[in-house]
Lab assay of single mutants.
Amino acid sequence: HSLRVHINGKDFEVHNADEHVIRALEELIRRGADADELKEFLERWKG
């Protein structure tokens, strides 16, 4: 899957995101994670 996440006016393109990554991202958003947390998660995932 390809996923586009809009954080703090920046678009993050997440390519080849598997279900696990997408679910983790949705969980963060549901918990009310702020932009920094989401960005950190995506950067860690992209490795």
Rank of each mutant, 00 (worst) to 15 (best):
H15A: 07
G32L: 03
I22V: 10
A33T: 08
E37Q: 13
K46A: 15
L42D: 00
K46P: 15
K46S: 15
R30M: 13
D34M: 07
N16W: 06
A17N: 03
E26H: 09
V21G: 03
A24T: 09
L28K: 02
A33W: 07
D34Q: 11
D36Q: 10
V14L: 10
K10R: 12
H20S: 12
R30N: 13
I29K: 02
A35F: 14
H1L: 07
I22T: 04
L42C: 07
L38T: 02
E37R: 07
G32H: 06
V21N: 02
H1T: 15
E19I: 14
K39M: 15
V21R: 02
D18I: 03
S2F: 13
A17M: 11
L3Y: 13
G32M: 04
A24S: 08
D18Q: 10
E40I: 11
L3Q: 04
V14Q: 01
R44N: 15
D36C: 02
L25F: 13
E26F: 12
H6M: 06
D11H: 12
G32A: 05
A35V: 15
L42K: 01
S2W: 09
D18F: 04
H15M: 08
S2E: 07
H1E: 14
H6I: 12
I29V: 10
R31I: 11
I7P: 00
R4V: 15
F12W: 09
R30Q: 11
L3T: 05
L28H: 03
E13W: 15
D11P: 09
L3C: 12
R31Y: 10
I22N: 02
A33D: 02
G47Q: 13
E26S: 08
F41Y: 06
N8H: 08
D11M: 13
N16I: 09
V21W: 05
G47H: 10
D36W: 12
E27C: 05
F12Y: 15
E37K: 09
E19N: 09
D34T: 13
H1M: 06
N8E: 07
R23A: 10
R44T: 15
E26I: 12
A35K: 05
R44E: 12
A33Q: 03
I22Y: 06
H20V: 12
R4A: 15
V14H: 02
R23S: 10
H15G: 04
D36I: 08
A35G: 08
H1C: 07
I7H: 03
E19L: 13
N16E: 07
E37G: 05
D36R: 07
R44S: 15
E27N: 09
H20K: 14
I29F: 06
G47C: 07
K10Y: 10
K46R: 04
L28T: 01
D18Y: 04
D18H: 08
A24Y: 09
H6G: 02
E27R: 05
R44I: 13
I22K: 06
E27H: 07
H6A: 05
I22C: 02
E43F: 06
A35W: 14
K10S: 07
E26Y: 11
E13K: 03
L28N: 01
I22M: 07
H1D: 11
N16V: 08
V5Y: 03
H15D: 07
D18G: 07
H20A: 13
A35H: 13
K10C: 03
E19F: 05
F12G: 00
N16T: 11
K10L: 05
G47S: 08
R30C: 07
A17R: 03
H20L: 12
D18W: 03
E26L: 14
A24L: 11
H20R: 12
A17E: 10
I22R: 05
L28Y: 05
D18S: 13
V5C: 03
E26M: 13
V21L: 15
I29E: 02
R31M: 13
L28M: 13
L3G: 03
R31W: 09
N8R: 02
A35T: 13
N8W: 04
R31D: 13
D36F: 08
N8C: 13
D18P: 15
N16K: 05
E13C: 11
I7M: 04
E13Y: 14
R23Q: 10
E37W: 04
I22P: 00
R44G: 14
H1Q: 13
E19S: 10
G32K: 05
K10P: 00
L38P: 00
A33S: 06
A33I: 06
R4T: 15
E37L: 07
H15W: 08
E37N: 05
E37F: 07
E40Y: 06
K39L: 15
S2G: 08
E40D: 14
W45R: 01
I7Y: 06
E43T: 05
N8M: 07
L25C: 00
W45T: 03
L28G: 01
A24G: 10
E26C: 07
F12C: 01
R31F: 10
R31E: 13
R44F: 12
V14D: 00
S2N: 11
R23K: 13
I7V: 09
K46F: 15
I29C: 04
D11S: 09
E27F: 06
E26P: 00
A24W: 09
R4Y: 11
E27T: 07
R30F: 13
I29Q: 03
H20T: 14
G9T: 00
F41V: 08
R4L: 15
N8D: 12
L28C: 03
E43C: 03
L38Q: 01
A24M: 10
G32W: 02
R30P: 00
G47V: 11
I7L: 08
H6K: 08
G32T: 02
A24N: 07
A17V: 14
E40V: 12
L3K: 01
E40R: 13
V14N: 00
R31A: 13
D11N: 07
H15L: 12
L42Q: 02
D18C: 09
L25M: 06
I22D: 01
H6S: 14
L25H: 01
G32P: 03
I7G: 01
I7R: 01
G9S: 01
R30S: 13
A33Y: 08
E19R: 08
W45G: 03
K39P: 01
R30T: 10
A35I: 15
K46Y: 15
G9I: 01
D36E: 12
A33V: 10
I22H: 04
V21M: 12
R31G: 13
N8F: 06
F12P: 00
E43H: 07
R31P: 01
G32V: 02
F41R: 02
K46C: 08
E13R: 03
L38W: 05
I7A: 02
E13L: 10
E43Y: 05
F12H: 03
A17F: 03
K39H: 15
A33E: 03
H20G: 10
A17S: 06
D36V: 09
N8K: 05
L38H: 00
F12E: 02
H15Q: 08
F41D: 00
I22F: 06
D11K: 09
L3M: 09
N8A: 08
N16Q: 06
L3I: 15
L28A: 06
D11F: 12
N8V: 02
R4S: 15
F12L: 04
V21E: 04
N16P: 04
A24H: 11
I29D: 02
A35P: 09
E37H: 08
H20I: 11
L42P: 00
E19A: 11
F12T: 01
G9W: 01
I7N: 01
A17G: 05
E40L: 11
K10W: 04
F12I: 08
E27G: 06
E40H: 08
H20M: 10
E43N: 06
V21Q: 06
E26G: 05
K46N: 15
A24Q: 10
R30H: 12
L28E: 05
R4F: 11
F12K: 00
V5L: 08
A17W: 04
H1S: 14
E43L: 11
A24D: 09
D34I: 05
L28S: 01
E27P: 00
E40S: 12
E26D: 08
N8L: 06
K39W: 15
W45Y: 14
R44M: 15
F41W: 10
S2K: 05
G47M: 05
D18E: 11
E43R: 09
G47F: 09
K46V: 15
G9C: 01
H6D: 05
W45K: 01
A35Y: 15
D18K: 06
R31K: 14
K39N: 14
E13P: 03
D36S: 11
H6F: 06
F41C: 02
G32D: 05
R30D: 11
W45E: 03
L38E: 00
E19K: 11
E43K: 08
R44A: 14
A24K: 11
V14R: 00
F12M: 03
G32I: 02
H6W: 07
V21S: 05
D36P: 06
R4D: 07
S2C: 08
N8Y: 06
E19C: 09
H15K: 07
G47A: 09
H6L: 04
D36N: 10
F12S: 01
R23P: 03
E40C: 04
V5S: 00
R23V: 08
H1Y: 03
R44D: 13
V14M: 06
L3P: 01
F41T: 05
E27K: 07
F12N: 00
E13Q: 07
V14S: 01
R30L: 14
E37V: 07
E13I: 14
G9D: 03
G47Y: 08
R4E: 13
L3D: 06
I29M: 08
R44H: 15
H20D: 13
K39I: 15
R4I: 15
E13V: 14
D34V: 05
R30K: 14
H6Q: 11
D11V: 15
K10T: 11
W45H: 10
V14P: 01
E19Y: 12
E40N: 12
A17D: 03
K46E: 15
V14Y: 06
K46H: 14
F12V: 06
W45M: 05
K10M: 11
D36Y: 10
A33L: 06
H15P: 06
R4H: 15
D11Y: 14
E19Q: 13
R30E: 09
A35C: 05
N16L: 06
